[in-house]
Design a protein around this nucleic acid. Structure first.
Lengths: 258, 258
DNA sequence: AAAGTGCCTATTGTCCGACAAAGTGCATTT
DNA sequence: AAATGCACTTTGTCGGACAATAGGCACTTT
C-alpha cells in the first residue's frame, strides 16, 4: 500500500451513490436541460427517481448546494439557480488566507486586474454605469473623513468599475482578490486617515477619464490609486511581504449588489 | 409573505445543525487552530463531540469536502487540507459556462491576465521556472503538427508562466478563465492546424524575453500570442460574441500539476 | 370581495438503529 | 522479513421515525 509510484495502474475510484446523485443533477444543469429557476423535485421525488435512500439524496444535495447549482429558499423547495459567484469567490478568498498569501501578491494582482478593468470600462461603460459611479462619488465625498465608510465606498467603486466592463469573466477573476481588498483598505483607512482626499480625487479622475473615453488617463490614475493603497499599507507600519491577516472576510458590504 | 421591502425587520435565518457543524470545523481551520494535514476525528468522534446524529455530521462533512477544507482519502480518514484551488476553479468555470459568457469576454480577460502574468514572471522567474518552460518548449516543438497535443502543451505553458510569477493570487485569479482556455484552444488547433508554428515561435520569444528580463518584449509577444488565439477562433468560423460552448471542462490535463 | 385567521398536509431537518463493504492493524505462517 | 489471514474499525447506505415549519385551503371578519 505504499505511495510509491511503482505499478502501472491508476488508483481506482469507486463513485459513491451520493456523488452520483450530485453528478447526475449537475449534468442536467450544465447541459442546459435544467434551467435556472426550474424546480427540482422534493427529496422524496429524488428518492423515487434515483432509487436511493433519502440520507443519500440529502448528502448529494448538500454538495450541489455548496457549489451553488441548487438553492433552497429558506428551508423550502429546491430550485436550480445560476451559481452566483459570491459564495464561490468567498471560498476562494478563504483559501487564499489559509495559504497565507502576502500583501505584495495582492497588490501586484490588484494592479493587473484593476488596470485591465478600468481599460475595459473606458471602452464599454454605459450611461447607467457612469451614473452609478457618479452616485458612488457623491457618497465618497460625503464620508471623506470617515475612514471606515470610505473604505466601504471605495470597495464599491472598484466593483462598479468592474461591472462597467460588461465582462463577467474579468469581473469574476477579480472578485476573490477583491474580497480581500476590503479588510485591508479598512485597516489602512483607519490608520492613515489623511489618505481620504487623495482617494476621492483619484476616483474623480478615473470617472472623468471613463467619461472622456481616455484610456491612458484612466490607467494612469488607477495605477496611482492602487499604488496609494500600497503606500497606505506601508505607512500603516506593515510589511508588504507579511501574510494577509487571518481576518475572515465577512461579505464585504460593498459587494452586496453584485 | 410578499417579497416587498415593507417592514423593518430582516429575514431570520435559522441555522441548521449540519451547517453549524460545518461552520464550527471551518472556523477551526480558517483560524489556524486546525492545520493542513491534521486529522479530524472519525464520524463517530464528531458525533460525540457535537452531540448530533451521524447523518447530520455527514451532511456537514459534505459541505466542507465540497469547499475543499477537508478531504477524505479514498474512503478513509478525514484530514484538513489546504484548499487546492482546482476544484474551486473548476466550479467557477462551470458557473461561467452556465452564465453563457462569450469568447470576447474570455479573450479580453486573457489579455489582461496573461499580460500581467508574463510581466510578473519576467520580474521573478527562477532558474527552475525557466528550466520548466524550456522543457515545455521542447515538447511543444515535438508535437507542433499534432493540434490536440499542442493545445495541451500550450495550456501548460501558460500555467508555467503563471507559476513563475510566484504570485498565488494572480495564479488563482487566472485559473477559472484558464480552465476555459483549453477546450477553446483545442477546438482552434483542430480547425486551424497551420497556427502551430506561430504558437511555438511566440512561446520561444516569450521564454527568451523572460530570460533576458525584458518586460516590453515579453508583453508584446504575449499580446500577439493571445491575439493569435482569437484570430484562430475567428478563422475557425466562430463568432466571438457567441457563448463559450457548453463543453464541460474535464480537468484540463495541463493543469494537473498545479 | 378582500383581508385576516386557523387548521391540515407536505416537506424538511434530525434522530435511531442496522448492515455490508472496504480499510487498518495485528498475529500467524512461510 | 515478507506474505497471508483474521478480527476490528469506519464508512456508505439503508429503513423507519418524529417534531417543526411552510404552503395551501377553508373559514371567518369587516
Amino acid at each position: 500500500m505504499s505511495e510509491t509510484e511503482l505499478g502501472r495502474f491508476d488508483r481506482i475510484k469507486v463513485p459513491s451513490a451520493y456523488e452520483m446523485v450530485a453528478d447526475a443533477i449537475e449534468r442536467e444543469i450544465t447541459s442546459g436541460r435544467l434551467k435556472p429557476g426550474d424546480q427540482i423535485g422534493t427529496e422524496a421525488d429524488l428518492v423515487r427517481q434515483f432509487g436511493v435512500n433519502r440520507s443519500t439524496v440529502r448528502e448529494g444535495i448538500r454538495v450541489l448546494e455548496q457549489s451553488g447549482f441548487v438553492r433552497r429558499e429558506t428551508g423550502r423547495k429546491l430550485f436550480v439557480c445560476v451559481p452566483r459567484y459570491r459564495n464561490l469567490s468567498s471560498r476562494m478568498s478563504r483559501a487564499m488566507i489559509i495559504n497565507e498569501v502576502t500583501f505584495r501578491e495582492l497588490y501586484e494582482t490588484a494592479q493587473v486586474l484593476e488596470g485591465g478593468a478600468v481599460q475595459a470600462a473606458v471602452e464599454r461603460a454605459t450611461d447607467d454605469d457612469i451614473a452609478a459611479l457618479e452616485e458612488n462619488q457623491l457618497r465618497a465625498e460625503s464620508v471623506v473623513d470617515d475612514p471606515i465608510r470610505l473604505a466601504d465606498v471605495d470597495t464599491e467603486f472598484h466593483a462598479l468599475v468592474a461591472r462597467s466592463t460588461r465582462n463577467r469573466v474579468l469581473e469574476l477573476a477579480r472578485e476573490p482578490a477583491a474580497l480581500l481588498f476590503f479588510p485591508t483598505s479598512e485597516m489602512i483607512c483607519r490608520r492613515v486617515p489623511q489618505g481620504g482626499s487623495r482617494m476621492v480625487a483619484a476616483h474623480r479622475e478615473i470617472i472623468d477619464a471613463i467619461k472622456a473615453r481616455d484610456v491612458e488617463r484612466a490607467r494612469t490614475w488607477m495605477f496611482r490609486h492602487v499604488r496609494d493603497w500600497k503606500r497606505g499599507f506601508e505607512r500603516a507600519g506593515r510589511d508588504i511581504d507579511e501574510p494577509v491577516e487571518r481576518i475572515f472576510p465577512k461579505l464585504s458590504p460593498g459587494a452586496s449588489f453584485l
